[in-house]
Simulated assay, not measured.
Amino acid sequence: MMEKRIATEVRAEGRRLSGYAATFNTETRIADFSETIAPGAFAASLRGQPDILALVDHDAGKVLARTKSGSLRLSEDARGLAFSIDVPDTTLGRDLLAMAARSDLGGMSFGFTVPEGGDEWRGEKRTLRNVVLHEISVVQSFPAYGGTSIHARSRQQRTDADRRLAVLELEACHVAIS
């Protein structure tokens, strides 16, 4: 059974969405247990999966991008699972960008399965150490994981004021997560 996890923070600036679909070492409550994602949990999947999708609300009928075509780029860094989506010029893409610009999106999520030995349980605490990533999703409602982010970017040059605002927003996000 594929599991899904959701996280928050959505902003818009243009035709590209980028941010984090998952963050490491952030504990969240899932039903009757707590869960944390360990650094490196996505590494094997990113190396081995031929095609990971970017969806809306985990709906396979609402494809935004995919790694196979290059319109979705994924990587791990010290913070978590970073993504960049080239948003299509479709009704769905335009609607999402408009919602992101108004901060109306719920956040990001990811769908995954856990291979044998990929998680570790200690009482009611689960740590994901290795997952098979199937998709990431822009979610329009409520998140399960905090600390993820989504930003819409254009190819236009940013002004110094835009850069200062982005740094202030990033610092505010970091304070909220800590």
Results as ranks from 00 to 15, higher is better:
Ala54His: 04
Gly48Pro: 00
Asp95Ile: 06
Ile85Cys: 11
Ser69Ala: 13
Ala12Thr: 09
Thr127Cys: 07
Ser18Glu: 09
Arg126Thr: 01
Leu96Lys: 11
Phe33Met: 08
Leu81Thr: 14
Asp86Val: 14
Glu120Gly: 02
Lys125Gly: 05
Thr91Ser: 15
Gly48Cys: 10
Leu74Val: 06
Ile6His: 10
Glu3Ile: 12
Phe42Met: 10
Phe33Arg: 08
Val114Phe: 00
Val131Lys: 05
Ser84Ile: 11
Arg47Tyr: 00
Thr26Met: 01
Val139Trp: 05
Ala38Tyr: 07
Ile37Glu: 10
Phe42Lys: 08
Leu97Glu: 09
Lys62Arg: 10
Ile85Met: 06
Arg15Gln: 14
Ile85Gln: 07
Lys62His: 11
Asp89His: 15
Asp57Met: 09
Leu72Gly: 04
Asp77Arg: 06
Gly80Cys: 01
Gly80Ile: 00
Asp77Phe: 02
Arg16Trp: 13
Ile30Leu: 15
Glu124Val: 03
Ser103Glu: 10
Leu72Phe: 07
Asp57His: 07
Arg94Phe: 10
Glu76Phe: 01
Arg79Ala: 12
Thr67Phe: 11
Val10Gly: 13
Asp89Ile: 12
Val131Leu: 14
Thr91Arg: 15
Leu74Cys: 03
Glu120Arg: 12
Arg94His: 15
Ala44Trp: 03
Thr36Val: 15
Val131Ser: 12
Arg29Lys: 15
Glu76Leu: 04
Arg122Ala: 14
Asp51Gln: 06
Thr67Asn: 06
Ile52Asn: 05
Gly111Leu: 03
Asp119Thr: 10
Thr67His: 02
Ala38Val: 02
Arg129Lys: 15
His134Leu: 13
Leu74His: 07
Ala98Gly: 13
Ser109Lys: 02
Leu133Met: 08
Thr67Pro: 12
Val114Arg: 01
Gly118Lys: 08
Ser45Leu: 07
Ala65Leu: 02
Ser45Phe: 05
Pro50Glu: 08
Val63Glu: 06
Phe42Arg: 05
Ala44Glu: 12
Arg29Glu: 15
Leu74Gln: 03
